[in-house]
Design a protein around this nucleic acid. Structure first.
Length: 888
DNA sequence: TCCCGATGCAA
DNA sequence: TATTGCATCGGGA
């Protein structure tokens, strides 16, 4: 007889949720314990009973026929907590991915659907198994239909058929309904007969068999008290029985073929399990999937490396190194602290080369880094820059990059926020891999008293294995998507350059910063005093909330925009109030000064390494959606320059001894890229003639000669040029230029009239993106833009702007990355000691040995200008100085 | 303690 | 209601 498992979805997830002592929650804040318990229970049922069919019944919010019969039905039942309510839709997604049928029907409870299905199944010759935490469903038991009732949450269960039920309760499943009709049910707010409890109800049922029969023979009922109660509440008892009766005649279509258990949608399931961090289920899924016969799943092909089968060598003595040479591609993972303030300590290095896994215990080896530098190997890693950084700190200088799985994934999809090896391992390999923190939490923290070698060795092998397997999978996708150029020509060669820039660092004069800090502190004190005086009270000037209240409530200034919390106090609002009150300029001044002090003085000083007096910023290659680099701790890409007061900070950034700073910045790189990509004749001609591009734009749009263009007109044209790059709107331009929307609209029209090719280019980007879901840069870098086909107007508008901006910003990023690689290589090839230390989107800075200055200036300019050939010349402007301040 | 909104710095 | 970032602060969960 084929079994069909019929599961009470709401009941089971409720039980699971309350059974768990500790809440389960993912790092993204999704509660998962209900789902987890549910799935465990389901797995157990599958294993123990091997049903051929399965269906899950859910309740709907809509009122049922019981509510209509008795308005108090289920009144006062406490609602599902929101944490659990959030889990239900996710569970439903999982069931869908498992290809398990779900049923729900307006006007009926899950009980009724379950009863109806069970009855139908039985009549079709199946053996129904009902899985629930709800005792009421015991009434559905027959000689064939069995009820599995959860006990102690969901970890154990009892199985009842008709006989088991009679043994336990002494009456039949049907009598169970009569029993409830008499004693009622508090949880469903079924009244029953007041004063009749479990004892009396049991006695009455055993004697009279049913509620109807009891009422018919009420005269015989003893004792008198009970008789009176039954007489008085006969109607109530009948109604209670009706409420407690599960409807097995629900009008629903039952097609058992839909309930047949089949193969799940593995990819969907993996995605969901990954998101829910159900690593155990993930692992089980892998086993099922690879063990499955002929499902024809391409992802089930054998992995390149089986970490468990590698020969494992632990190198703890220098003598072992002497006998060892490595060649060719090597997966690597360096274990060390990622400290940028001091020399990072390296615990050990894991490496897979060929069929052998090596773990080098660096705490015991003295010649390891010299040895490693001599090996003719190319590295494959995940976030190799971090490994390189640590190795650079220990004397290695040259690296060959075979592959980086983090960078590769960034090239495949730059919109992700999580590039962790464990996430990618789940997605590509369907193997769970703990991240470093999880691993050491599970295996005991490393401390002074325990030898961590064993742990690092075990974990390193898993990591290196995953890297090699992941790399193979990614390479195929890189080829499919035609991303080879951007990956192999730009991103991978850049890894070493980024590591080197971090390692070199930027020398920073702490004394200058501290001196600046003192001056700023004095100014802040003075401004604070004056502001308090004008406000008539003391308050936190840094709090937009408090400041807004002072300005717009107490002083009664006209409020501009509102924010979610209150009045906007941003600079552009305050500037409009400049003449309205003397406190305004003081606030703006205070803002400027305190920004400088908190972010750029107080924030920067602790990041200066005491070892070498430099800041070693973190450059990140996988953060921006467009292909730019980003920079943190500190962010050297936003050091002030526009205002003189802030610009003075740059005096603290200085070259090393006997060195000078040499920098060069691309002139109008994004507009040049636009000229090239759009092929706009007017733009191209202006660039080729070496014209001032903003002045030339103004002249064309306004139809007057260049030499008649005023500074005001030039500055407007400049804003429009920026606007074009950003995918401008009339609204955006109008607020930027403080002109009416209509004027801005006309300006834009006039601009596009004179730059038809630009307009055409922009339209084409949007059109392409709508058709293909992505846009591309010069090197073929892609950015997927899901907003582009959104139904909401605003969202779609955003998508269109991204489609217009990304090819330009991204292509400029491509070009400077190529330039960085060329410059880095040129410095090395020419045997120079000068080093690239910073990139700021269109600018490169080299810490230059004085004696190498001319050579460096030449190679920097030349390599930047020849990085990529465009329809217009690339121009780089050179600067030099004794501090970053002087590079202007 | 962590997280988000507001703000402001850069290209 | 203009693109891409990061750091700081206040204030609330």
């Amino acid at each position: 007889m084929e079994r069909i498992a019929i599961i009470d979805g709401n009941s089971l997830i409720n039980r699971a949720y309350y059974a768990m002592r500790n809440p389960m929650i993912t790092k993204d804040g999704i509660f998962t314990q209900g789902i987890f318990g549910f799935l465990n229970m389901m797995e157990k049922i599958k294993k123990d009973y091997e049903p051929a069919y399965m269906v899950i019944a859910f309740d709907l919010k809509a009122p049922t026929f019981r509510h209509k019969a008795y308005e108090g039905y289920k009144a006062g039942r406490k609602k599902m907590p929101p944490e659990l309510a959030m889990e239900v839709p996710i569970l439903k997604d999982i069931l869908r991915a498992m290809n398990i049928k779900q049923v729900e029907l307006e006007g009926f409870e899950a009980d009724d659907l379950i009863g109806t299905i069970a009855k139908e199944a039985e009549s079709c010759g199946m053996e129904p198994l009902i899985i629930t935490g709800d005792k009421d469903e015991l009434q559905l038991a027959t000689d064939i239909t069995k009820i599995i009732l959860t006990r102690k949450g969901v970890s154990e269960f009892d199985l009842y058929d008709r006989q088991a039920m009679m043994d336990k309760y002494g009456f039949t499943p049907t009598q169970f309904i009569d029993f409830k009709g008499l004693m009622g049910d508090q949880s469903d707010n079924i009244p029953g007969i007041p004063g009749v409890g479990e004892k009396t109800a049991t006695k009455l049922i055993l004697e009279y068999g049913s509620v109807e029969n009891l009422i018919a023979n009420v005269d015989n009922v003893k004792p008198k008290g009970v008789k009176a109660k039954v007489e008085e509440h006969a109607q109530l008892a009948m109604m209670s029985k009706r409420l407690a009766t599960i409807n097995t005649q629900v009008p629903m279509d039952i097609d058992f073929a839909e309930y047949k258990l089949t193969e799940p949608d593995y990819d969907a399931l993996i995605e969901l399990y990954s998101r829910l961090e159900f690593n155990r289920f993930l692992k089980k899924l892998n086993v099922q999937r690879s063990g499955g016969t002929g499902s024809g799943d391409p992802a089930a092909k054998p992995l390149a490396v089986d970490a468990e089968k590698l020969e494992k060598v632990c190198v703890r003595e220098d003598s072992q190194l002497a006998e060892l040479t490595l060649q060719g591609k090597t997966a690597i993972k360096v274990f060390g602290d990622h400290n940028h303030l001091d020399v990072p300590q390296i615990e050990g290095v894991a490496a897979v080369n060929g069929d052998t896994y090596y773990y080098f215990d660096c705490r015991n080896l003295t010649g390891f880094f010299d040895w490693l530098a001599e090996q003719e190997i190319s590295f494959a890693g995940h976030s190799l820059k971090d490994d390189y950084y640590m190795l650079l700190c220990h004397g290695m200088t040259k690296f060959e990059t075979a592959f980086d799985t983090e960078v590769a994934q960034y090239v495949l999809d730059s919109s992700r926020s999580n590039y962790s090896l464990s996430a990618l391992s789940n997605e590509y390999l369907h193997q769970s891999l703990r991240d470093e923190k999880e691993f050491f939490e599970e295996n005991g923290q490393v401390d002074l008293f325990t030898d961590p070698t064993e742990q690092y060795m075990t974990y390193g092998c898993e990591v290196c294995g995953a890297i090699l397997n992941l790399a193979e999978a990614q390479k195929a996708q890189i080829a499919d998507q035609k991303l080879e150029t951007v990956l192999y020509e730009a991103e991978l060669p850049l890894v070493e350059v980024m590591a080197s820039m971090e390692h070199e660092g930027f020398r920073t004069d702490k004394k200058i910063l501290e001196g600046f800090g003192v001056v700023l502190a004095e100014q802040i004190g003075e401004l604070t005093k004056q502001i308090y005086g004008l406000a008539g009270e003391e308050f936190n000037i840094n709090s937009p909330l408090q400041l807004g209240n002072i300005l717009f409530e107490k002083l009664g200034l006209p409020a501009g925009k509102k924010t979610k919390r209150g009045y906007s106090t941003s600079a552009d609002i305050l500037e409009k109030l400049m003449d309205k009150h003397p406190i305004i300029p003081l606030i703006l001044e205070y803002r400027t000064v305190s920004k400088l002090k908190s972010t750029y003085v107080d924030g920067l000083i602790p990041l200066i390494s005491s070892t070498d007096g430099k800041v070693h910023a973190h450059f990140n290659q996988t953060v921006t959606t467009t292909g730019r680099i980003s920079c943190t701790e500190p962010n050297l890409q936003n050091i002030p320059i526009r205002q003189e007061m802030g610009r003075k900070l740059r005096k603290a950034f200085i070259p090393e001894e006997n060195c000078v700073l040499v920098g060069a910045d691309y002139s109008q790189i994004e507009l040049r890229v636009l000229a090239h990509m759009s092929g706009d004749d007017a733009l191209i001609e202006s660039f080729n003639n070496g014209e001032d591009i903003h002045r030339a734009t103004a002249a064309r749009v306004l139809g007057i000669p260049e030499d008649k263009i005023t500074l005001e007109e030039r500055s407007r044209a400049k804003a429009v040029n920026f606007g074009v790059i950003y995918g401008m709107s009339a609204f955006g331009l109008s607020s930027e230029l403080r002109i009416t929307r209509k004027d801005a609209d006309e300006y834009i029209k006039a601009y596009f009239a004179k730059h038809a090719a630009v307009k055409e280019f922009m339209d084409e980007q949007v059109k392409f993106c709508k058709a293909n879901g992505y846009v591309s840069t010069l090197l073929g870098r892609k950015r997927f833009i899901k907003e582009i086909n959104a139904s909401a107007y605003m969202v779609k508008q955003v998508g269109e702007r991204l489609a217009m901006n990304t090819p330009i910003q991204g292509s400029a990023a491509d070009i400077i990355k190529l330039a960085m690689i060329k410059v880095f290589r040129a410095l090395r090839d020419q045997g120079l000691r000068s080093r690239l230390i910073l990139q700021v989107h269109d600018e490169l800075i080299i810490n230059t040995r004085e004696e190498e200055k001319e050579q460096v200036e030449k190679l920097l300019t030349e390599n930047m200008e020849s990085a990529y050939e465009l329809a217009v010349k690339l121009k780089a402007d050179l600067n030099e100085g004794e501090s970053w301040y002087e590079l202007k």
